[in-house]
Amino acid sequence: MLELFVYGIVLGSIIALGAIGLTLVYGILRFANFAHGDLMTAGAYVALFFVASLFPSLGVPDARLAPFSFGWRMVAAFPLAMAAVAGVAILLDKTLYRKLRQKGSSAVMLAMSALGASFIVRMVVLILWGADYRSFYPGVLRPAMELPLGVKIRPDQVLILGVAAFLVVLLHLFLHRTKMGKAMRATADNPELARVSGIRTERVITCCWATGGALAAAAGVLYGIDVQIHPGMGWNFLLPLFAAAILGGIGNVYGALIGGLVIGVLQQLSTAFLLPTYKPAVAFVGMILILLIRPQGIFGPRE
């Protein structure tokens, strides 16, 4: 049980990274980005491209970084994948959502557009890589370490926790110590007053997509390091991402962090009774329960 809990935290930190990006986008752009899961997929596959295709052909060395399962290529690929998906997210905004915004389209139309975008991203991945499951470093043995209380955890998973925590701290510093970060929070708080103060909304939006996309990519790559990647992985994360964001109070970054951890743990604990494929359904049931009991989430405003 304890081991399930520990792995739930690992999974939860991946979900949290995705949910934070999702909730950021919701807070500033006020619509449910159904493409967020597939941004995770995109991140994972861009990393795969670097690690398995581009770097080998460029002759980039790949000394294995024991005790982890990956080598230097992954270390280089990680930030590149984040940057690439930040770019993809900005591109989607410029070509799709911005046009709908300018027409004054409703949140539902934007969500529908995002749904379409999620399929487009997934189809591109399927066209370029096919439907198989892939590993970043196939055939590498991944022994577990033993922690006190008999809990086994892989070094990779400890790293995932570390990287996730690092990114969250970075995000916090960004949102609270930089002018653009504060402008983003201000825009999420009161978009009209932000305009009145001279904050250029479109720049904030671009920054928001970059941040959300980068975090989603990070989540996707980390998941791929831990498990495997496949084109449907992002869609499977959609329900946990939304459940986490709603649990924490939609729009609330720290709520999404906590929400992610909670959903991750819930999902893992459920595997004691249910098949692992039911995990998205567990997240879904959890989400429905929150919506029934306390729809504004843990940290949402009092209604």
């Binding site: 449910a32 329900l239 939304f242 879904f284 989400m287 729809p295």
Partner: peptide, 28 residues
């Protein structure tokens, strides 16, 4: 009963969840 009072985009994610859940049940 639980979902119709929700905001439109919440209803949407709920319907995704329902479809996925049923597919999982029928599959497993």
């Amino acid at each position: 009963i639980p979902t119709l009072r929700l905001r439109e985009d919440y209803l949407a994610i709920a319907t995704i969840g329902i479809a996925e859940t049923f597919r999982l049940i029928f599959n497993n």
